[in-house]
Simulated assay, not measured.
Amino acid sequence: MSQSMKPSSPVSPLRRSFVVASTLATAGFVFGCGRQSPAAAAPAADPSKPVTLVEFSNDGKRLRSVTAPKVVKTEAEWRKRLSPDAFVVTRRDGTERAFTGSLLNVHDKGVFRCICCDTALFDSATKFESGTGWPSFWQPIAKENVREHEDRTFGMVRTAVNCARCDAHLGHVFDDGPKPTGLRYCMNSVALKFAKAA
C-alpha cells in the first residue's frame, strides 16, 4: 500500500479532550463573565467631575456619603501600580480565566474593594456560589460605587460593571442570580481586594 493510501490514524482521546476543553474555556470567557481577550476600555466618565460615593468600614457598615475626585492615572502609572493581570482586566477590559481567581472561594466576613482605588464595591454578605468560576454577588455594596454601561462585544449585548471612582473594569452583571435581586454580578478577582472584617 502506498504512503498516501494508508488509513489515517484515529484522533487520540487526549487530543479530543484538549480540543473540547479549549472550546469550553473560550465559551466560558464569552458567556460566563467577561471577555476572552483585552479590548479597548469603555468610555470613561468625565474625569473633571467629582463622584458621589458611599464609604464603608471593612465589616460592611455604611459610614457616610462623600464627594470625591475621580482617580485618573496615565497608562504607565497604572502599569507600575498593578500586577500585569490586574492591569489587563481593569484598564483593558480583560477577563481572568475561570476558576483561577484568588477570591473565588473567600467566604469570610468583609468588604471587596477596588484594586485600583480602594473604593468599597461588594459586601461578603451578598456573595454566592454561581458555579461560573468567578466571584459572584447579588448586588453591589452601594449603587453609587459602581457604574454600569452597555457592552456590545462578541455580537452580544451585555452590561459591563466599572468602579465609579477610577473606571476600573470589574466584570459584568447578568439577570440569572438569586433572590432578592435576581442579579449576578460576575467579577474578576484581580480587579478586587478583600478587606476582612475586624
Rank of each mutant, 00 (worst) to 15 (best):
A191S: 01
F31L: 11
R147N: 04
P7V: 15
A40D: 14
V89P: 10
A98N: 09
S130Q: 13
G131T: 00
E150L: 15
A98Y: 00
A45Q: 05
P47Q: 09
P50D: 10
A197S: 06
A45T: 08
L82M: 06
Y185E: 02
V190R: 00
R35Q: 02
A197W: 09
G182M: 13
R113L: 03
T159I: 13
R165G: 02
R158H: 06
N58G: 10
G32I: 02
F56H: 09
N105K: 06
C186Y: 01
F154G: 14
T159D: 11
V19M: 14
L14T: 14
S22F: 01
M187C: 09
K80R: 10
N105W: 01
E75G: 06
I141H: 03
V88T: 03
F87G: 02
D59S: 03
G101Q: 07
K73A: 15
T67D: 09
R97G: 13
N58W: 01
S102N: 08
R81S: 09
L53S: 04
C163F: 14
V11R: 15
T23F: 01
M1V: 07
M187V: 07
A142K: 06
D108G: 05
C117V: 03
V190F: 01
Q36E: 00
Q36F: 02
D175Q: 09
A142S: 04
M1T: 07
M156R: 06
M5E: 11
R152F: 12
V19W: 12
V66H: 08
V146L: 14
I115S: 08
S8D: 08
L82I: 03
P178V: 11
L104Q: 03
T95D: 00
F137C: 12
L63G: 13
W138P: 06
K143N: 15
T181V: 15
R81E: 11
K70V: 11
D123G: 07
G131I: 03
R62G: 13
R35F: 06
A42I: 01
S83I: 08
L14H: 14
T52R: 12
T159E: 07
T67I: 14
D118V: 11
T90L: 03
F99H: 06
P69M: 15
A164V: 10
W78E: 14
R184S: 07
E129N: 12
F31Y: 15
D59L: 05
F122T: 01
C33L: 09
W134N: 10
V106Q: 05
V111T: 08
T132D: 01
G60Y: 00
C186F: 00
L183R: 04
F31V: 09
A198N: 13
C166A: 15
L192Q: 05
L24N: 10
A160P: 06
K127M: 13
M156W: 05
T153Y: 14
L24D: 06
A120M: 02
V54H: 10
A86G: 10
L183I: 06
F87T: 08
T90A: 13
S22H: 09
K49P: 13
